[in-house]
Amino acid sequence: AKSVSISVEGMTCSSCVQSIEQHLGKMNGIHNIKVSLEDKNAVVIYDSKLQTPVTLQEAICDMGFDATLAD
């Protein structure tokens, strides 16, 4: 499993955090996800055969948040 940190802009409360955690948690190949409102990021542990940092970033963008990959 690999880990990636994704910056997420646009979250304002804990329900934003929860909806991202729940939504990504349902995707294939996600082992763990921790979203932080304060740090404005999502740390995802994923199976690299099923997901890539870009597919994870896009999944968050599709939900209407601004997600970017730090390099």
Binding site: G10, T12, C13, S15, C16, S19, G64, F65
Partner: peptide, 14 residues
């Protein structure tokens, strides 16, 4: 929707 984050998210997807 519960907060402005939610309504912003709706705005963006639309």
């Amino acid at each position: 929707m519960t907060c402005e984050g939610c309504s912003n998210a709706v705005t963006r997807v639309l």
